[in-house]
Amino acid sequence: MNGMQGVNEKLSSRPHKLASNRVWRTYHGGKMLEAWQGGEQPTDNSMPEEWIASVVRARNVGREHIVEGLSRVLTEGAEEVTLQDLIAADPVGFLGRRHHEKYGSETGVLVKALDAAERLTIQVHPDRVMAQEIFQSQFGKTEAWYILGGREIEGQPPYILYGFKPGMTRDTWEKLFWDQDIEGMIQALHKIEVQPGQVILVEGGMPHAIGSGCFLIEIQEPTDYTIRIERTTPTGRVIPDAMCHQGAGFDRMFDCFHYETYSLDEIKSRYRLQPKLIQKTESFEKYALLSYENTPYFGLESIEIKKQYALHQHGEFSVLVVAEGAGTLSWENGRVRVTRGDQIFLPAGVDALICESEHGDEPLHLLRCLPPRT
């Protein structure tokens, strides 16, 4: 182990490109995701999500024998290893001392890219109180979506279903479930069209569904607890009971919903977040898309680089997703070229990173995903 720790002390002082990490889900999609990643013949399939900087195993009933969801790193002079293994060998170097003191070897955050060719089943994720009570987990599944793009599916522009309309009660919601009144469930939630660049915060307990045609980056707490209220997907795939209640049982799963109701204006003003300009120069523009004022569980920044940007970590780690463009990332002992769709883990040991755009007329657009507030 001492030798391994010595190697990882060096690994924690450099960025790491992550291998593609597609994950099976109950819905179809992924065509736009594959095109974004440079695929020559993109298609929709049952692997519509890319899990980024993940130390979380996917919870898929019937596929428990398959280890899926864990991100992999290709290290120099070594075989491909999981990000989880590298962090475990040097948690302070990779995650930072303050984070390690609070969360141990847990990153506390999970990033995904997903593309939905069909509407996802209406669902909810537990907040931290319910996650601890029902699943004995310190993390719930509050999440946020950054809309990268989208496509029309059967003439329908990209949309989401979000939040209970006025008049909803727990008794009514439970009856809709037992009757499997899908149209009644859909009508109980607000339908909102989405546009590229928008950010939506989805707190634990909020009922929702990503609609068909959505292509987005999701940043969330690091769990896969998804309570599904529909027992059949829109394209007819049967959802096993355990995929509905996640092992909690049908009675307890309704405890995970928050039954507050909202007008459409309340939803848009409270949960559709506005970017805040942090700094603008001739070389770059930096925005806070999601700050710790919105949620303490994670943060999200947008950095559009025309020429050059110096990224400083201040003893914390982060995750970079290349949303558009191409360029180079340089640090004390090296440099790496990046292009659209790339995903990079920046250990806390990387104090400074110089990010340069390859083409001045096409900015290098980085999304920087931040861990929980410490």
Rank of each mutant, 00 (worst) to 15 (best):
R237P: 02
E154M: 11
R63I: 00
T107N: 03
I200T: 06
Q136E: 11
L216T: 08
D265G: 10
V111R: 02
R272Q: 11
C256I: 15
Y309A: 00
E316C: 13
A88G: 12
L346A: 00
A113E: 07
L329D: 01
S105T: 13
A288W: 07
L289T: 02
M1Y: 15
K175F: 11
G184D: 05
G349W: 00
V111T: 13
R63G: 04
S105P: 05
S283N: 11
K31V: 13
I186V: 15
N8W: 12
N21C: 15
V124W: 06
P363M: 02
L74V: 11
A116R: 14
H208C: 09
G334Q: 12
C244V: 06
V109F: 08
I229D: 01
D265Y: 05
Q180T: 02
M1G: 14
R57A: 13
W178S: 06
L148W: 03
P275A: 03
S46A: 15
E230L: 08
D342K: 02
P372G: 06
F254S: 12
M168W: 13
G205N: 10
Y146N: 04
F317K: 01
A78Q: 12
W331K: 03
R151F: 12
M32Q: 15
P166K: 04
V55F: 09
M4A: 13
H65C: 04
V319D: 05
L353N: 02
H190D: 01
I87A: 08
E9P: 00
H208P: 05
L300R: 01
V124R: 12
A131S: 14
E304I: 02
R25D: 13
V199K: 04
